[in-house]
Amino acid sequence: MAAMAPRLLRWQPLAGAVMIVAVVLVWPDAGWKGGVWSLRAVALVLTMGALFFLDDASAEVTAPVPAPLWLRTVVRAGLALLVALPVWIVALLVERSRLPEVWLLWLSVEFAALFVGGLAFAALLGRGAPEPGVLAVPGLVVFTLAALAAPGEWTLLGLQTTDWTIAHVRWSVVLSVALAGLAWASRDPAWRRRSARPSSMATRP
């Protein structure tokens, strides 16, 4: 499947995202706060590009293959991570000179939560549509806007709060929920069909 990836995957948006990340990283903005927002932009753009990896125009054709849905989802998510993770590490290396070290860790938690959460949302949408990326990206944007609008005691993206640790505990909770959501959304519908009671038509001689 990995060898066929370029034909099976919608890789162009992630390639575009990597180019945008390059522009963000060379963009001149002063101070450590600028570095934080640059890395947040990188995390958002990379995640938006990665969501299109779950688009599967052949979903109906591949549904009956022996590989279950969770495996197909994991392979697609893994390939997206294979591209996004090195780019994220490069971004951290570029920005590390002007950021306190703890922020590198916190921003990585934010990126992980966004990435997994976005994939979980796309996987959930993918159960009813072959192109979940197109729908999941606006959802991710709305989540980000909601995080910006959130009140102080629920802040996720603030810089002014002194309670950054609490904010990143919240991000960890988001990450945990996202992982559970991804696992739940990747359940193969065929399992339910197999365990369902046979209909009266099927038992007729």
Partner: peptide, 20 residues
Amino acid sequence: PLVLAGFALFVLASVVELRD
């Protein structure tokens, strides 16, 4: 849903600004 969410977020942002 996106339009509803957008206006809801504007109202939320207004309330949060008013309060905090």
